[in-house]
Nucleic acid binder design. Structure first.
Length: 352
DNA sequence: AACACGGGGGA
DNA sequence: TCCCCAGTGTT
């Protein structure tokens, strides 16, 4: 153990760390687990309201395991990375049935649950059971790469191995939970990505990046994500006050969320009466009335830019669209939709 | 090893 | 815009 680094981290935690979060110091593994899943790739400020909603609605793992799945997705709506929600439900059911509602208490069994990787398993194991596993998240990677002046990319295979070993060697094995919490808080509050508080940092004398003025160049990432643009036009097709919707099942964005009738194109579409008629004809071969067409909405995802509109039409004759369900508004309100579609539905209609 | 997976906030 | 956030699962 690098005694100096670890001890100073613990001293900082004891004397200066005043970061407060509802799940901090929590011992109920269910609550710890929930907070960790919500916070994967998610800012504390963004996840906080969701955590409170979930705990209020599902105070125990049993409640979560036995809830209607759509209700859980509706609660997750807007948070993103929806496979987290799917895996949360799956793991809740396993804990409820296989483990009789008692959260598994070994690292291996925790890690085996769906949606739990090395980081989350170490977090739960150390926070709930005080087991000696070091967390390695974005905060830890940043702190270690700066303190030790490591330029090995954090997203490379060798980098991951290196940082994992280093994190393990630094862990305070007497107080793994407290130490793990401390180093993450330190990364979030002092050794921040932008404008870190090096002046107030208790470790600055030993920090390689500070000594060498590398702070703004570390950590290093090697992978650059490629982005693509998609044009998604949604048709809200209504018959007698009911509208066609379906659940997205494909291995694509927004899996398990719902959508209206989708017309996706590889180029932007400038809607005219003619091409609108053609587009609708590909779904239904019946006369229709155009109600309204929205303004163009853009949504930037991590590696996709989604551009599109929603077009509301009504049909008088009874019809069926294969793959879609015809549901009343009351039912549709209970379904979880992507942010993009919710934004579309809030748009003012433009004249056509 | 590379890639897919959301949404929000700060610079 | 770009980057990052208490990362994980799939191919």
């Amino acid at each position: 153990m690098n005694f100096d680094f670890t001890q100073k981290m613990m001293v900082w935690n004891h004397t200066e760390n005043n970061r407060s979060m509802p799940w901090k110091g929590e011992k109920d593994p269910y609550k710890i687990w929930l907070s960790e899943i919500i916070l994967q790739q998610t800012r504390v400020e963004q996840g906080l309201a969701y955590y409170n909603k979930f705990i209020e609605t599902f105070p125990t793992v049993k409640k979560l395991a036995n809830a209607p799945e759509e209700k859980v997705f509706k609660l997750w709506e807007g948070l993103g990375y929806y496979s987290r929600c799917k895996n949360l439900i799956a793991s809740a059911k396993i804990i409820d049935s296989v483990y009789k509602g008692r959260f598994p208490d070994t690292y291996e069994n925790i890690l085996a649950l769906k949606g739990i990787g090395p980081y989350t398993a170490a977090a739960i194991a150390s926070f709930a059971f005080n087991l000696p596993y070091a967390v390695v998240d974005g905060n830890v990677l940043r702190v270690l790469s700066r303190y030790f002046g490591i330029s090995t990319p954090i997203d490379s295979t060798t980098g991951k191995k290196l940082y994992n070993q280093l994190a393990d060697s630094l862990l305070d094995k007497e107080n793994p939970g407290v130490y793990n919490q401390a180093i993450m808080d330190f990364g979030a509050v002092v050794c921040k990505p932008q404008n870190p508080l090096c002046g107030a940092c208790p470790q600055k004398q030993e920090c390689r990046a500070f000594q060498q003025a590398w702070v703004n160049d570390l950590p290093v990432k090697e992978k650059v994500l490629k982005k693509k643009t998609r044009y998604m036009y949604y048709f809200a097709i209504s018959v007698n006050g009911k509208t066609f919707v379906k659940k997205r099942e494909a291995k694509d964005i927004w899996q398990n969320l719902h959508e209206f009738v989708l017309h996706e194109h590889d180029e932007p579409i400038d809607w005219t009466k003619k091409n609108l008629k053609e587009a609708v004809k590909s779904f239904i071969d019946k006369p229709f009335q155009l109600q309204e067409i929205s303004t163009i909405v853009k949504q930037q995802l991590t590696h996709q830019l989604i551009i599109g509109q929603i077009i509301k039409i009504t049909v008088q004759t009874p019809i069926d669209i294969p793959g879609y369900d015809l549901l009343p508004d009351k039912e549709i309100k209970k379904l979880a939709f992507p942010k993009f579609i919710n934004t579309l539905m809030q748009q003012e209609a433009v004249l056509f």
